[in-house]
Simulated scan of single mutants.
Amino acid sequence: MANIKSAIKRVDTNNKKRVNNQAQKSEMRSQIKRVEKLIEANDVENAKAALQSTTKHIDKAVQKGIIHKNNGDRQKSRLANKVNNLSA
């Protein structure tokens, strides 16, 4: 454990950020799973609506640096392809 006052503060700050980032990343993953579940159920309309919400969550995670930009783009692309193939 840190002894210096600034190091102790840093540990607290890092823990708060880690918890916040975990929550946001978990929510993003849940959204992705929700879209995939709707795709499996062949629910085109709800899948498209859920895709928009999921895209926002992914973009937020990229913007805050929780995931890499390429990772976010890949996730959005794969989901969009699945939804488009479902409606075709």
Rank of each mutant, 00 (worst) to 15 (best):
I4K: 07
L79F: 04
A50V: 05
S77Q: 10
N21P: 05
K60E: 14
Q24M: 15
R74E: 11
N84S: 15
R78V: 11
G65K: 03
R10P: 00
V83C: 08
A41R: 03
L86Y: 06
D59R: 02
N14L: 13
I66S: 05
A61E: 09
R34I: 10
N3I: 11
T55N: 11
I8K: 14
E36Q: 14
A88W: 03
D12M: 13
R34L: 04
K64I: 09
V62A: 05
N14Y: 04
N42K: 10
E27R: 07
T13K: 14
I39R: 00
I8R: 11
K64V: 02
N71D: 07
M1D: 12
A47G: 04
I58K: 01
V11Q: 14
L86E: 05
E45H: 01
N3P: 02
I32H: 02
M1T: 04
S6F: 04
A7V: 06
T13I: 09
K5R: 11
L79A: 11
I4T: 11
S53I: 05
D12A: 09
V83K: 00
G65S: 02
Q24I: 07
A80V: 08
N71R: 13
E27P: 01
R34T: 13
I8F: 02
L86T: 00
A41C: 01
N42L: 10
R18C: 04
A23D: 02
D73F: 08
M28S: 07
N70K: 12
I8S: 06
A23W: 02
N70T: 08
K16R: 06
L38Q: 05
A7I: 00
K25L: 06
D12Q: 08
N21K: 07
S6W: 02
R18I: 04
K17S: 15
N46L: 03
K33C: 06
I66T: 04
N46G: 04
D43Y: 02
N42H: 10
Q75W: 03
T13P: 00
A2M: 04
S6T: 03
Q63M: 14
V11S: 10
Q75E: 10
L79D: 10
K25R: 07
D73W: 01
V19P: 00
T13S: 11
I67E: 05
S26P: 00
K16Q: 11
N71L: 11
N84W: 03
R29A: 14
S6E: 15
R34E: 15
A88G: 12
A7F: 01
A88Q: 06
N46A: 10
N85F: 04
T13Q: 09
A88V: 09
A61N: 10
G65W: 09
I66K: 01
K64W: 03
K5L: 08
